[in-house]
Design a protein around this nucleic acid. Sequence first.
DNA 1: ACATCCATGTAACGGGTTACATGATTTT
DNA 2: AAAATCATGTAACCCGTTACATGGATGT
Lengths: 185, 185
Amino acid sequence: MNTLSYGLLGLLARKESSGYELMLRIQPFWQAKHSQIYPLLSAMEDKQLLSSRWVQQSDKPDKKVYMITEPGMQKLREWMHLPLAPSVTKDELSLRTFCLWLSDIGIALDMYEERRKLYFDKKLFFNDILKAIPEDQRHFSSKEFSDYILASKGLMMAETELKWCDWVLDLLKQHRLQKASGHRS
Amino acid sequence: MNTLSYGLLGLLARKESSGYELMLRIQPFWQAKHSQIYPLLSAMEDKQLLSSRWVQQSDKPDKKVYMITEPGMQKLREWMHLPLAPSVTKDELSLRTFCLWLSDIGIALDMYEERRKLYFDKKLFFNDILKAIPEDQRHFSSKEFSDYILASKGLMMAETELKWCDWVLDLLKQHRLQKASGHRS
DNA sequence: ACATCCATGTAACGGGTTACATGATTTT
DNA sequence: AAAATCATGTAACCCGTTACATGGATGT
């Protein structure tokens, strides 16, 4: 059982879902394609950690809805006592930043502007989730508590990333202005 | 050529290094083991993007130092014009947070305390890098500019993560207190 | 004595992406 | 008319980790 499988199990423990729905639910916290998720769900069903049924839909293709079983719940509870892996981030922008000195300042500005838009959208995304959680569901005993603290983290991180982008863009623009005035004098 | 290969090329463009040194230099921004880095360096040497020489050391094992070649520099400059991949983060803590409701509050407190320590050390790490960059090297034209803005990002992110952990820990401790007083009344 | 750092490499395996394959409905 | 959304699945390939293999120097 890998971490993604446990994550899917955890989502299913809160609400039965199809593979497609799970892909959408887990995406903001763990990027995984449908081609990775479907085989993991099949394998967990084979191990009796999940059960499934086909649900007919009008106007949409039929879907296979998975539910967690009692052995699945047991496995989940065990996971919470296993050692926690550290967070891993892989960002091409960091590696490219090492090469800023060998490229045109225009290329650099485009790169950070593009990333700025992503962080801005990310901020809106988590802000919308947060706004949808009413005050009375924001305490530990509520089912929505985890959504509340995770969306808060997403929002805080996006705001910091946005702030950093704006700061870098300012430094780059300042440098461009100084270079222009230098040419005139 | 994958992203990690370009990243190694970018580090070598700034300073010749051994595989071991590259592993240490890239680690804060892209976690990769030596077993992944050594074969990539070999492959890039075969493609004439790098050259190498053995350097003898007293008190330490000999090391194989790689230098970037002119075709390697060309490849690097091309990379800066290719589409930029979005950042990917995989954090087991987020997936576990979905399952908070099914575990003991003590387990939750331990988990966030443990992570808090990690973020605290991360903050110190980037703060030390930042302190080592003098004021006159913090402008765009300096070789150290990329180190300056990357260490700043690392510090800002670590501070936000730390703030989030403290906030979550406060919420959990508040809840525990309320439960205790509820039992008394 | 034992662990850690330095230093390089390979082999086996599991994780994850891209592409292939299908097809209805809704939006632009 | 074309693109996006919903929905499931498989196959080939590349990315990345764990384990194997070696060995001197330094620190606890």
